[in-house]
């Protein structure tokens, strides 16, 4: 048997956190069907290794920004699941005080600069966050996530060009799950290998197997070292797959069941569990104990969210302006 590439502790950490995210998202999906979560709801199920392999590399004070499939990224960055579930249920205890919802998770404390709802809009923002760190002489790096659909937006190309020109410490990460909503990559471009887009700007770019948390970790380590070393941005195209639809209202007619099943065989969580089992680093009792622990965390997040109040109507005119006596038009 090949020697495991990382320590037992690292695999256990990956297993526990990815399983928590999976169970959390499964619960969010259930709650959405029950209409206890409203709005749009984009689940991360299947893509967990993309974030797990990055947060095992970065520092706590590094920055992260993402698009609207953003329940898991802030948890990975340290936000308590209670605050995410409460936000999904539009409660004042949510990480954005019930004002953002599924697509707009934020945590200044954990340097998570948000979930953003306009495809590609977060890409120049990510470059700008990195611009400020470089301006201030900080050695923080920014992880800027986007889907494969965002690669088509002009914002990406403008931001890539300036990030390279100014050598900004930002790592652009395409989470290529092969479908922009219901439109496959093949139907939107002649350049199927999305990492090659970076080469247009002479940006160091790499394709990564996003179903392997180890591969994501290694690629992120390379990217972070490059960016933190003052060498400018990096592009990672992480090839992943979402097991669920684009959102909860996705009929899924644009891909076959066989394709979905094929990818489920590469489930990143199963892969980590197999490594743990093969190395006899985990036994059945321990697996059950982890399951129970995670179940309790998810249930607690639901309880916390359900018991939390909605924002009071008096919140309507708060958090719009820093100026506390802004004269709103109130008729």
């Amino acid at each position: 048997m090949a020697k495991a590439r990382f320590s037992k502790e690292q695999y256990l950490k990956w297993y526990e956190e990815m399983l928590l995210w999976r169970r959390f998202e499964e619960k969010a999906g259930q709650l959405y069907i029950q209409q206890r979560i409203r709005g749009f709801c984009h689940l991360y199920i299947g893509q967990e290794a993309v974030v797990a392999g990055a947060t095992s590399v970065i520092r706590h004070d590094d920055n992260m920004i993402s698009a609207y499939r953003d329940h898991v990224h802030p948890i990975a960055k340290g936000v308590h699941p209670n605050a995410i579930m409460a936000e999904l249920m539009a409660k004042i205890t949510g990480c954005s005080k019930g004002k953002g919802g599924s697509m707009h998770m934020f945590s200044a404390e954990h340097r998570f600069f948000g979930g953003h709802g306009i495809v590609g809009g977060q890409i120049p923002l990510g470059a700008g966050i990195a611009f400020a760190d470089k301006y201030n002489g900080s050695d923080r790096v920014t992880l800027c996530y986007m889907g494969d659909g965002a690669v088509r937006q002009g914002a990406l190309h403008e931001a890539f060009n300036m990030a390279m020109l100014w050598k900004l410490p930002v790592i652009f990460i395409i989470e290529n799950n092969n479908y922009a909503m219901g439109t496959s990559v093949e139907r939107t471009t002649n350049v199927l290998e999305l990492h090659k887009i970076g080469l247009s700007y002479e940006m160091p770019s790499k394709a990564v197997n996003g179903m392997s948390v180890e591969d994501v970790h290694d690629a992120t380590e390379w990217a972070v070292n490059h960016a933190r070393g003052g060498n400018g941005p990096v592009l990672l195209e992480v090839k992943t797959y979402r097991f669920r639809g684009h959102s909860m209202s996705d009929p899924g007619k644009y891909r076959t069941k066989e394709e979905v099943e094929e990818y489920k065989k590469q489930d990143p969580i199963e892969q980590v569990l197999n490594t743990l089992k093969k190395n006899k680093w985990i036994n059945d009792a321990e697996i059950d104990a982890i399951d129970e622990k995670i179940k309790a965390i998810v249930e607690e997040s639901v309880r916390f969210a359900e018991e939390s109040p909605y924002p009071d109507a008096s919140e309507l005119y708060k958090d719009v302006y820093v100026q506390d006596d802004y004269p709103y038009i109130i008729e």
Binding site: F113, P124, L125, A127, G128, I129, F131, A132, A155, E158
Partner: peptide, 12 residues
């Protein structure tokens, strides 16, 4: 692009 970079810089 540079409007967005400005906003990101202001957030940070």
């Amino acid at each position: 692009g540079f409007a967005g970079i400005g906003v990101g810089a202001a957030m940070n």
